[in-house]
Amino acid sequence: MRATPGNPDLPSARGISRRDALRYATAASALAGLGAAVGAGAPAASAAAPTLIDYAMKQIPAQDIRAAGHAGVINYVSTSRPGSSFGAKPITLPYAQALTTAGLVIVSNYQYGKPGGTAPSDFTRGYPGGVADARTGWQLHTAAGGGQSAPIYFSVDDDVDRHTWDTVVLPWFRGINSVIGVQRTGIYGGIRPCQWATADGVIGRSGTPGKVWAWQTRSWSGGQIFPGATLYQRIIDTASNPGPIVGGIRVDVNDVLAQDVGQWNLHP
């Protein structure tokens, strides 16, 4: 995921305080599959919570991810855009098996297009695009061994307004729902799309009470967090603010905010 920060003033959100971070750490300490991955000999990735990394450039060896102290990955169940060749898109069965064998967890994400890319943002294709993307995402997810009840987080990698949400993005999610169902649908995006997706009932609920399949990015969130989010993309790799290097490439880092973030091992 690549994005730029914004500052919407949203009274229904709240800032991320140190107290919040410690509370998340307490909740995450019992995180099935994730706490064990961090605690089994790997150094702690963050004082606040277990962390998952996301990346597209190449398949980072599992031992490098563990050595960096991360509990797992958010990997793509989508292919590369025209003119690009990302080694981690899509996740493959052998790579998923290597990650699992190393005690790392996996969460699925779909993103093919992007703003200004060689393919437009996926959500711009509305309901028919949602149908097509869900079919592709689910086929790649299951081919790699993804859990049958695990969600896929579909990306809204742009600062969309409410009109665009209602007229373009929401129909896209309705198309996704028509293929894989609401419970297996998640969203990646800034705070407002996460809130809107929840209110409109197009994303499923985590097994952690009060949480939904919302992977929130720091971008366009104004330093605030949606209380229902399961994941928070805290470090975003950009040219001006490079992310940490793991396995020779820069990565994004995501804080775990729930015991159930849709990891495959909890959703066989």
Rank of each mutant, 00 (worst) to 15 (best):
M1N: 13
P5F: 04
P5L: 04
G6Y: 01
P8N: 01
P11N: 04
A13M: 03
G15T: 03
R19I: 12
A21C: 09
A21R: 13
A21E: 02
A21H: 10
L22M: 06
A27W: 09
L34N: 08
G35T: 02
A37N: 11
V38D: 05
V38H: 05
G39D: 13
G39M: 01
A40D: 14
S46K: 12
S46T: 04
A47W: 03
T51R: 14
L52E: 04
K58F: 02
K58M: 12
P61D: 11
P61R: 09
A62C: 01
A62L: 00
Q63A: 11
I65A: 00
A67E: 08
V73M: 00
N75K: 12
N75G: 10
R81K: 14
G83C: 10
G83E: 10
F86G: 01
K89S: 01
Q97Y: 02
Q97W: 04
A98H: 01
L99V: 07
T100A: 10
T101Y: 05
G103D: 08
N109L: 08
Y110H: 12
Q111G: 02
K114T: 15
P115Q: 10
P115A: 15
G116T: 02
T118I: 10
T118E: 14
A119M: 09
A119K: 03
P120H: 10
P120Q: 09
F123K: 04
T136I: 15
G145V: 07
I152Y: 12
Y153F: 06
F154A: 03
F154Y: 15
S155D: 13
S155P: 01
D159H: 04
V160I: 05
R162M: 12
R162P: 14
W165S: 00
T167Q: 15
T167V: 11
L170W: 04
L170I: 02
W172E: 08
V179E: 05
V179R: 06
R192K: 13
P193N: 03
P193G: 06
A197W: 04
A199Y: 12
G201F: 07
V202D: 05
R205E: 06
S206N: 02
S206G: 13
G207Q: 15
G207Y: 12
K211Q: 01
T217K: 11
S219P: 14
Q224C: 08
P227N: 13
L231F: 07
L231M: 14
L231H: 13
D237N: 14
D237V: 06
T238K: 06
V246D: 07
G247P: 08
G248R: 15
G248E: 11
R250D: 00
Q259G: 11
Q259R: 15
D260R: 13
D260L: 06
